[in-house]
Every structure is written in structure tokens, then in C-alpha cells.
Design a protein around this nucleic acid. Structure first.
Lengths: 214, 214, 214, 214
DNA sequence: GATGAATGAGCCTTCATTCAT
DNA sequence: GATGAATGAAGGCTCATTCAT
């Protein structure tokens, strides 16, 4: 007599952990960081709540590993996008901006979880080092691209500040999208960032994004 | 026999509430939203444990009123700045941008508290309506100014998107400043937003901010 | 409409703590050290279980303070007995031995609790320093009395070993009394220790205990 | 491809059980009765978690069997010592006393485990019947020997009380040895018991133990 | 037989809330 | 109004036990 979908024993350690982390992201989006409970995470994953401690020891560890997971995912995403881009500064910037809005990364749950971690990082040094704004390599890469564009296009402007505007604009529209009251789409959000790029680099970006170079 | 700074028995109702709200903001910045306890708030305020419930009934009410307090403070601040500005679009935009960085508003504790509320708003509709990104009047005002500038300066561009970039840039550098790892100052943060304004409105804003109009 | 014995608010801190410690001793005797729960302690004391943590922070702290309480009580008891004894070595030894069997100290619950702490001390250095066998002052006092008796009575024998036999005999019969299967009384237990004293110091102790000195 | 010391798949049932019991004794000594976990027992034995329940069904059964094992070991030890002794009362008492201090029995882990069981027996009738103080046959044997010595040596004294002093002294110095703070050796502990025997039976025991009978 | 992931009851702990003083 | 002890619901954590592999 088969019962309703018994939990498979001996799922690989990594797969179980990932399953629990995905459940954590969803619960965080639904309840907010402050109201996550391990019982909810386990319920969302369809597992017994003891399993969370079995795999992560403590709630704090689960949360830290969730952030770490998101962080690695984010980094892998933009690096892959850069690798596949035409190796011109403008194409690279275009790839970097668009990478933030690919469907795998830019889901409502992930946006919400990221925002929670950003906020909580304020009081947790451990989180700060994992959050995007503190990803040194990302910032350096973006600043390098901006510097190249300035040189190439003969623009005025401070590469660090331009990079900062582009980064926080992307973060900001992402945060806007979290709100249920926001009246604009992910596509509009992306276009907003591209408009900012066009403002700084009008010879490389136009109203429709990256311009084909002559 | 006077003792050292006794708690005044009958401080005005409003003053007590404000005292507790300020303590809440500080505790939120220190511990993070998820770890606020009423005991900590009371301790920070130098008051007895039970007083918080006496004045606010519930913890949720205290938090909601804290956000409301911040929201009103924020709104009053930018409205006052607008009222005192020269009534040209560029001067008004300049005033609006600078308002976010006046010392009374842009304290570390307030920045941190705001970020916490933004994040928590994801799962609490009550908070969403009070958060800056959803302040319809603020957005309408900013968009209006941008539209005026576009008209006046003969710029291309979408007023709503430009307004959005300027708003989230201001929010974003504010969030950056919360991190203990951020290597730049509030002055640099302000300059970053002004650079963004200059990118969109180069005939009104330059490297040193608002240009004197001919 | 009076309800059944409401818990008086604002009982003095010390009184509440003592009440909880006494409940702990009783529960330990009934359930054994390994099966104490704070819920049982609170129930025994007739209080809400949250109060235990309020007054003692952790279960470990409650147990440590319980041992400390017993230890101080035990020490105060034998010191008082010594102070009131005729200042001859034999009378002092007699007082010391009998002190272990006064009703206030030698209750079934206390005997049982002591035994539990002795056993648990094996793996907890904190407990060791509080347990009787490690009460340096007690041992020194007892050895001093034995040495005085040896001198006075012209006995052969090692004061440290004799003191040790008397001490562990007292502890041992105490432990015997804990067992529900033990077929002898506290009076018989006391007489057993006195017989041991008589074996070592036959000119001072006889079949009926302390001999009147000529 | 041989790996390092693989666990033999089919170790005999008895050998596995004994291996787990020995691990239990060690863990009990290290952690204390209250903090034994089956996971620690399995780890100490180098076996898988689930094996403990496989062999003993429940934790309580494991503990009861451990005590039973110690009890049988103890009994076999003193009976063997008695069997090998010269059949005089003094030699038999000497053998009985010394049996408690042979290295196979008097290990730190065993002393500690015994003490834990004594304490826990307070609240567990099952344990009481297995603990030394309630070993009727042991007590009867010891009392019989003491009675024989009294008759043989023309001593005054109550055989039951003398037997009790000797028994609890042996137990007591054993308990002393458990403490890491105890400043005396097993040899000194044994000598202490022999001194007690000499106090009661001075014509059979002297400062160096059993006297050679004329 | 052996393994170790999975389960869930039980317990410690925290903390919002109440309320006698 | 103010205080802080008392309450009890809620949740994190441990761990004995089960069982698919």
C-alpha cells in the first residue's frame, strides 16, 4: 500500500542541503527574515524539522550557508555572463548589467532574500563579507570596465562613482521589484539601469541599450 | 535626598514615546531587526521593562510606530528642503538630493533602521506603504521635477526612469554607508548622486553639483 | 472570588531562589540527576517554568547553585556543631560525627541529592570543588582532631587515614540510607560511625558513643 | 584492496555487546551519567550509530546491561579471591578487601561508572538490586567473616556494623579516587581499609596488613 | 549484520505580555 | 505612572529510535 511520496532515504548530502537552502529562501521571502522558523523551513521542504539541525547544526549556520549559497550563485552568474560576452568594454558592461536580470537569479524569492540579508548584514559582520556590496572583485571588475569605457569614449567622469551608480541602481530596482506595490516589471527595471548607462556613456548605450559600434 | 538623575515620573506621554522610539532605532541598528527585544529597548532607554507595553501595547505596534516616525521625519525633511529652495527645477532637485544627507537624517542608526524596514516590508504590507520607495508623493514630486528639467533643458529621456535612478542611487549609497566595510564617506555618497544628476542633466549639474544658471 | 493560592508577586529574590532550589533537591531525589527537568522543578515549586530561567538563567546554573547551597548548608552545620561542643578533642569529634545526622541535614532528599552530585562531580570540575570530599577545611579539621586524640590517648595510627575512614564511613552509611532497600535506620547509621570511632579511640569512645572523661 | 582496520562484519554477538558496554563505561566516566548519548557510545566503540539499538534495543537496556556486567564482574572477582585465599577468617577478610583494588577492577573509568550507578540507583529500583551495597550475598559473606573473627579473636563488637564500616570504607576511598583533586593513590586507599580492619581486629591485622598467625 | 539519514517527542530557553505592588 | 517578577506560548536544539539501503 503505497503512502504519499515517502521521503527518499539517503539522498545525497549535498542535494538535501540544497533542498533545505531553497526552502529557506522561500520562507524568508514569505515571512521575512525575522519570522523564519525551522519548522516552516522543514515544512516547506516536506521534511522533518530535526533534519535541519542534522544537516546544518544551528539555525544561524543554515542562514549563513543560505547567504553563502546565494552569493556563490550570484558570482557564478555574472562571471559566466562576462566570459560569454564580446570582449569590448561596452559589451562587457552590457553583459554585467543584464546578468542581474536573468530569470534564474532574479526571482521574487531571491530578490527578497537578498534584501533581507543586506539589511541584516548591518549588525552581522559575517554577512557583510558575503553581501554583494562588499564583493570586492565585482566592484573592481565593474570599475575597470567603466574606466575602459571612459578612455575609449573620451568621457569625463569618475569611474568609481559611475560604477557605484550603476551597481546601486541595479540593486535598487531589484529591491523595488520586491514590493508587491511596485508598478513596474523586471524588463522596465533592466531598462532603467540601461538608461543610467546611456546617461554616462552616450556613445556606447542608447535608448535601446547597447549600441552597435561602427 | 536627591539621587542621580531619577527618571521623571511624569514625562509627557509624547516625550516618553519618542524616547522609546529612539531607543528602538538604536537597538535595531545594533542588533538587527530580527534580534530586537523589548528588554533591550527598555534598557537602552533607561526605563523599566514593562513600560514599553504600557505605551505601545504590543511590540508590533512599537515597530510600526517607529517606522511611521521615521517616515514622517523623512517626509518633513525633504518638504522643508523643497520649501526653502529657489523655485527652479534644478535648485529643487538639488535640494531634494541634498536633503537625504543632512546630519539629522543621515545617521548610522537611522540608515540601518531604514534598511531593516525596507527588507522587512517585503513580507509586511503595512510596512510597504510607509517605506520611502512607496511614498507616492515623493516619487511624483521627483518625477515632476525631472520632467520640468527635461523640458527646460531640452534633454532626451524618460522622467520616470531618471527619477527612479536618482531615488535608488540615493537609497543605495545610503545602504552602502551602513556597512562597516564601506570605504567612503557621506560626502562622497552625496557626490555620487550629484554625478548621476549631472549625467542626466549636464546643462544643470556639473562636477561640483548645481551649476549657476546664466 | 479568591482562587487557589495565587503565587504572591514580588516575593524577595532570595526567597524565590531558595524555593526553587528546594524543589530542585526534591526532584533530583525523586527522578535522579539525569532525569531532572525544569518543568518538574517548576511544578514542584508551584510556579511557572519560565521563572526558573528568570532566576537562574540556565539549568546548569540552577544545578550548580543547588550544590553550592547544599555545600554552604553542610559547612554551616558542622561548624555550628563544633562551636557549641566542649573544646576537648573527643567532644569535638563526637560533635562532628553527630552533625552529619541531624534531621535538618540528613533528610532522604538531601542524601539523595548529595549522592547525585558526588557522582556527577566525576566529570565536572566545577562540582568537585564544591563536594564534601573536597572540602579541604573539613578534612583538615577532622585530621587535626584525630591527631589531637592520638596524642592525648597515646594511640598508634595515622591521623589522616583515621580521619579518612571516619569521613567515608559517614558518607557511606549516608549513601546506604538513600536506598529504599536499606534495612537500617539513621540511628543505626550514626552508631556505626561511632563504633568506628571507638575502634580507633577506645579510651574516648565506647559502645554507647562518647565516654565521659575521668 | 584492504582498507585500514575494517570493522569485522560478523564479530560474535557477545563480543559486540561487550565492546559497546566497555565504550559505555568509558563515556559514562568522561561525560557523567546524565550526558551519555548513544552517539558518543558508538563513536567511542568505533561503530555506527544504529548498532547500539540493534544490539540493545533501547538506551535504558544498554545501561542496565552495563551495570549488570559490572556487577557480575565485581562478584566474580571477589569470589575468585575468596576461593584462592587460605581458609582462615583473617586471610579471607584480607582477600576480600584486597579484591576491591586489583587493577582489572579498580580502573578510573570503572570507579566512576560505579559511582554514577550508585547515585542513579536512588531513583531506580532496578539499579538498586544490582549495586554493591545491596549485594546480599556479599554482605552476608563479609558479616560471616567478621563474626568468625570476633569469635576467633575474642573481640567485642557488632559483626554487622564492623562489616558495614569495612564495606563503606572501601566504597568511600574508591569514590575518593574518582575525583581528580584527590591527593592519594590506590595503594594508600587500600592501606586505609586495612587500617580500619586493624582497628577492629588488632590481633589479626597490623600496620602492614594481615599479620602472620602464630 | 552494518550503516547513517530521517523522524519526532521532549526539553531548554527566550521573550512578549500581564499585573500586583 | 512606574516597576519588575511572573506567566506561558513559541521555537531552537538534542537525541533515542527507526528503517531503507
Amino acid at each position: 500500500m503505497p503512502t504519499a511520496a515517502p521521503v527518499p532515504r539517503k539522498m545525497s548530502r549535498e542535494a538535501r542541503r540544497e533542498q533545505l537552502i531553497e526552502a529557506t529562501i522561500e520562507v524568508m521571502a514569505e515571512q521575512g527574515f525575522a519570522r523564519i522558523t525551522l519548522a516552516d523551513v522543514a515544512r516547506k521542504a516536506g521534511l522533518a524539522h530535526g533534519l535541519v539541525n542534522f544537516h546544518f547544526q544551528t539555525k544561524d549556520a543554515l542562514l549563513a550557508e543560505t547567504l553563502s549559497y546565494l552569493s556563490q550563485e550570484y558570482r557564478a552568474n555574472w562571471r559566466a555572463a562576462l566570459d560569454q560576452a564580446t570582449p569590448t568594454p561596452a559589451a562587457r558592461l552590457n553583459a554585467l548589467i543584464r546578468a542581474d536580470f536573468v530569470p534564474a537569479i532574479c526571482t521574487p524569492a531571491r530578490r527578497s532574500a537578498w534584501l533581507s540579508f543586506w539589511a541584516e548584514a548591518t549588525s552581522r559582520p559575517l554577512y557583510q563579507s558575503l553581501c554583494g556590496g562588499n564583493d570586492r572583485f565585482y566592484i573592481q571588475t565593474l570599475e575597470g570596465i567603466c574606466a575602459d569605457l571612459i578612455t575609449e569614449g573620451g568621457y569625463n567622469g569618475d569611474a568609481a562613482r559611475i560604477a557605484r551608480v550603476l551597481r546601486v541602481t541595479s540593486e535598487g530596482v531589484w529591491a523595488d521589484l520586491v514590493s508587491t506595490q511596485t508598478p513596474y516589471s523586471a524588463a522596465e527595471a533592466l531598462q532603467t539601469v540601461l538608461d543610467a548607462a546611456a546617461a554616462f556613456f552616450p556613445r556606447h548605450f542608447g535608448a535601446n541599450g547597447l549600441l552597435q559600434q561602427p
